[in-house]
């Protein structure tokens, strides 16, 4: 009968239990990251004699300084730069080529239009993971191993982004294009002056998703960057573990893991509304 009172939303003891359940969930999500953060602020000696402390130590500047300036194989500052170039290159490149091709497919009638559309659609079925060996050979033949072009270009074509923009362009009122045509505006003028400004929110939402996608790439940089100075940070962490029985430099490795998380997490938290929107739209 008590149920009648609160009906669906919980009050009193039930409310506290609901909060408790959620807080346990949040702690479960946070715990691994908290532990990594603690490990990045203590000495190696604190870690190799388990159990390690559960509260941060005083080695924060020492460990992060060491990671950023020397790292293990390459300075982490270099790897951060590589990741930034790769993530921005993929996000900007994908958005640019997708905007152009969606514009062409929606606003023009030209021969082979249907064929091009289906060719783009089919790329949905070819994630990089299923074509790694031959794609690697293509990049090697172009001499693009250990280069930014090699990191970016194979990941840049995307059916998802093209479809998103196509869908959005379909909702743009026809009157706008008509008015532009009557005024004698060239198609590209219409694209830059009207369509592009109208797509701002969509572009921003997609940018958030694509930046994270690019930043978090692992397999592809692992294959094509054999030079430590071209490693991205996400794939570089694994390279910091010694082969064989040596003890890993845990404080530096954990500082690097934290540094690898900071940029994409800032993007998600800082642009939360755009992120949620981008996620929902790009899955449609």
């Amino acid at each position: 009968m008590a149920e009648r009172n609160g009906m669906v939303e919980k009050r009193g003891a039930g409310l506290w239990l609901t909060h408790l359940g959620l807080i346990i969930g949040v702690l479960f999500i946070f715990f691994p990251i908290w532990l990594a953060f603690v490990a990045s602020t203590v000495t190696q000696a604190d870690i190799v004699r388990p159990p390690m402390p559960l509260l941060p130590g005083d080695q924060f500047f020492e460990n992060y300084g060491r990671a950023l300036t020397s790292g293990v194989n390459a300075p982490v500052a270099t790897m951060l730069l590589n990741s930034m170039v790769m993530a921005l290159g993929i996000a900007v490149g994908k958005i640019a080529i997708s905007l152009l091709s969606a514009f062409a497919i929606v606003y023009f009638r030209f021969p082979l239009r249907k064929l091009f559309f289906w060719l783009i659609f089919l790329t949905l079925m070819l994630p990089v993971e299923v074509r790694i060996v031959p794609t690697y050979e293509v990049i090697a033949n172009f001499g693009m191993l250990n280069s930014y072009q090699g990191l970016i270009l194979p990941l840049i074509a995307s059916a998802t982004a093209t479809f998103l923009f196509r869908q959005f362009f379909m909702t743009v009122p026809d009157e706008l294009a008509e008015a532009a045509r009557v005024d004698g505006a060239k198609p590209m003028r219409f694209f830059f002056d009207i369509l592009l400004p109208m797509s701002r929110t969509n572009i921003a939402a997609l940018f958030v998703i694509l930046f994270i996608y690019g930043w978090n790439q692992y397999l592809w940089p692992l294959l094509i960057t054999t030079d430590p100075d071209m490693n991205t940070i996400v794939m570089g962490i694994k390279q910091m573990f010694p082969s064989g029985d040596d003890t890993a430099d845990w404080p530096v490795i954990m500082a690097t893991s934290i540094l690898a998380m900071v940029p994409p997490v800032l993007v998600v938290v800082g642009m939360q509304r755009l992120f949620v929107r981008g996620l929902v739209e790009s899955e449609k």
């Binding site: 999500i29 994270i212 978090n216 998380m261 998600v268």
Partner: peptide, 9 residues
């Protein structure tokens, strides 16, 4: 926000 944490990390 853990969505932003790479699988490798």
């Amino acid at each position: 926000w853990p969505y932003a944490v790479a699988p490798a990390v």
